Computed example of a mutant assay.
Amino acid sequence: MSLLQVNNLGKSFGGVKAVDGISFELAAGELLALIGPNGAGKSTTFNMVNGQLKADQGSILFDGEELVGRRPREIWRRGVGRTFQIAETFASLTVVENVQMALLSHDGKLFSTWRRAADYRRDDALQLLDQVGMQRQADRPCSVLAYGDVKRVELAIAMANSPKLLLMDEPTAGMAPQERNSLMALTKELVVQRGMAVLFTEHSMDVVFAYADRMIVLARGRLIAQGKPLEIRDHPKVQEVYFGSGKTFENKEAAT
């Protein structure tokens, strides 16, 4: 049974259909890439799954439960984590304190009378940091970290609610090729270890083809193709919409 089932999902802004009746599924232990040219509807789809936007039509079933109409915090507490294109951490806090803040939030104690937040579930926070290779830097301020390390901290924060589903919005944006591969290899490892599912958007086609188990392709709000990477690579409609006639994924990667 699929962990995530999206059926006939749609969203309009004024008279423009940003997402037009798309359907797809995602299983536990699977990395699914959501790709498409600018304006394809990727961000809108992401934000509907996350609860930041409410769908005009359709259904989003997560582990058998409807998500449409639920707030982002409710969805997060049900086991849906998220990372952002621009990493979101508290620069003034240490690495471990950032993860502890996420644990406090998950436990519903962020706005309670807790005053010794620095002591709260520190061992659990350190364990999460160990999983992303950041435990040795636990007591460093996030403000002094390299950007690739900040993205790892953000991943640890996203894991604080033990997600069954992780949404990753442009996870490798702004990263050098070696950092990109390192982060996605780590994500793949966590997927296998935890049996969770990952839905991610990504502009770097080398990352997509190297790490996605399956891909779905949007264009002008509609789903035009889905399948395994090699199937998508050779799909004539995808080639036409993404690059125009005479161009291929290989041509694009060679030029970047």
Rank of each mutant, 00 (worst) to 15 (best):
R77S: 06
V49R: 02
A55M: 09
E65F: 09
P72V: 03
G64E: 08
V68T: 09
L61M: 12
G58E: 10
R70Q: 14
R71L: 14
I75Y: 04
R73T: 02
G58V: 13
G69Y: 09
R71I: 10
S59D: 15
G81P: 01
E66C: 04
Q57N: 15
W76G: 04
N50T: 15
D56S: 06
N50E: 14
R77E: 11
F46M: 12
Q52P: 01
G79K: 01
I60M: 04
R77I: 11
K54Q: 14
M48Y: 10
G79V: 04
E65A: 13
I60V: 10
R77N: 10
E65V: 09
V80D: 02
E66A: 04
P72L: 10
N47K: 00
E66D: 07
Q57F: 14
D56T: 07
R77C: 09
G81K: 00
G51H: 08
R70A: 08
S59H: 12
E74K: 03
N47M: 04
A55W: 09
V49Q: 03
R77T: 11
V49C: 09
N50S: 15
L67F: 09
W76R: 04
E65K: 08
N50I: 03
W76A: 15
E65G: 04
Q57S: 15
P72I: 08
E74H: 04
N47I: 05
T45M: 12
G51V: 07
V49M: 10
A55F: 11
D63T: 04
P72W: 08
D63I: 02
E74V: 11
S59E: 13
Q57R: 13
L67T: 02
V68A: 08
I60T: 03
E74G: 02
L53R: 00
F62C: 04
D56Q: 13
S59R: 10
L67C: 02
R73L: 13
L67P: 00
R78N: 10
N47E: 02
V80P: 00
E65T: 07
G51C: 12
T45G: 11
G79L: 02
